[in-house]
Each structure stands twice: as structure tokens, then as C-alpha cells.
Simulated scan of single mutants.
Amino acid sequence: MEISNDKTRLDLDVIHAFLSKGSTWALNIPRSLVEQSISNSLCFGGYENGQQIAFARVVSDFATFAYLMDVFVVPQHQGRGLSLQLVQAVMSHPQLQGLRRFMLASSNARGLYQRFGFQQLGNPNIMMEINIPDIYSKT
């Protein structure tokens, strides 16, 4: 799989279809929000034979903090270790080195992320959130 940060190569149809119909975290997300999220993020597209088959994005200040999100491999290409390759590309990106905090949320791929040093919150008592999981279903 070839991995690129070139946003002009991203296939918004693939990304929106997966997030809005195939994800557990962004069901029914409008395409306009996907486009906006991409424009404000460092994005990683995974490609085989010119077709996008994987995606990840990072929101960061590139100095102290980053948040990894929307990581996926399209279903017909899963089970081949491509998510490992994708996360490796994210974690080795030059702009994401030396950060004080790198976060993510995962309900089903914790083992993958633990390989890269992610772990449960060390002090969850200091962390807070506003979380509206079904926000895109309410519109």
C-alpha cells in the first residue's frame, strides 16, 4: 500500500461512504463536515493501484498535542495488516514527533494502538469531554 499526505488524492466518496455508513463513530455524518474535517487536518490516504483503500487523519498543533482519528481500511482490504502500515506512517510523520500528548479513542483496535505506545489514560480524573455519539443522526 502506498501512503500519501497529498489531500488532492483523497477520494471523498470513499471516505464519506465509510464514515457515514461503515463506522461506529460518525454514522450519518454529512459530506460537508467530512470535507471540512479534512481541510483542517493532516490526512493520510492509503492507495493500491491508484484506488484509495485506507484513511487516517490527525488534528494537531504540531508542537505539543495531536489527536488521531477516523482511521480505517475499507472492508474488502481488511485483514492484511494495512492498518498497522497506516498507523506506522502516522506515527513516523516528521510533524508529529516530540509531542507532549498524542491521543485517540478506540473501541475495537486497542491492541493495534498499544503497539505504538498508546495506553489507557494515566490519570483519567483530569480528563474531561463533551461527547455526543449520535450527533449526526439528530439533524
Rank of each mutant, 00 (worst) to 15 (best):
L42K: 05
E2C: 07
S107T: 11
V87C: 02
S20R: 10
A54I: 11
A17F: 06
W25L: 07
R101I: 14
H77G: 00
L86Y: 02
I130E: 14
L84Q: 11
G111R: 09
Y136H: 07
G122C: 10
A17I: 04
A56S: 09
F72P: 00
A63K: 13
W25G: 06
S32F: 14
M91A: 03
F116I: 08
Q88V: 01
G122H: 14
A89L: 05
L104Q: 01
N28F: 08
P75K: 10
H16G: 01
E35T: 03
R9S: 09
M127L: 12
F102T: 03
S20A: 15
F65W: 05
M91H: 03
R80K: 12
L96Y: 09
S32W: 13
V74I: 15
N49E: 14
D61S: 12
I135Y: 04
N40M: 10
Q119I: 06
V87M: 02
R31N: 02
L68Q: 06
N108F: 05
T24Q: 10
I3G: 04
V58K: 00
F118A: 08
L68M: 12
L19E: 03
P94S: 11
S107W: 01
E2P: 02
V59I: 15
S20W: 07
F44M: 14
V90M: 04
T8H: 12
K7M: 08
L112A: 04
P133S: 11
L86F: 01
D6W: 03
V74S: 02
G122F: 10
R31Q: 08
D61H: 13
L96H: 08
S107E: 12
F18Y: 07
Y47V: 05
R115F: 03
H16V: 02
I135F: 03
Q51P: 04
V87K: 00
W25H: 07
H93F: 04
V59N: 11
R31S: 01
M91D: 03
F65M: 01
K7F: 07
S39E: 14
D70H: 05
A54G: 15
N125Q: 15
A105M: 12
S20G: 07
K138D: 13
F18G: 00
C43T: 14
I126Y: 04
F55M: 12
V87L: 02
S137D: 11
S60V: 07
L10I: 12
E48C: 03
N28E: 14
N125T: 13
Q95I: 08
A26L: 09
S60F: 08
V58A: 00
S37M: 04
P30W: 08
G45L: 11
A89V: 01
F116D: 09
L121P: 01
V90C: 05
N40Y: 07
Y113I: 00
L12E: 15
H77N: 02
E35P: 02
L68S: 06
V71P: 00
Y113F: 09
L68A: 08
G111V: 09
P30Q: 13
M128F: 05
I38Y: 05
L19N: 03
S107Y: 01
F72M: 03
L68C: 11
N5I: 02
S41H: 04
F44D: 12
D6F: 00
E48L: 06
R9G: 06
I130T: 13
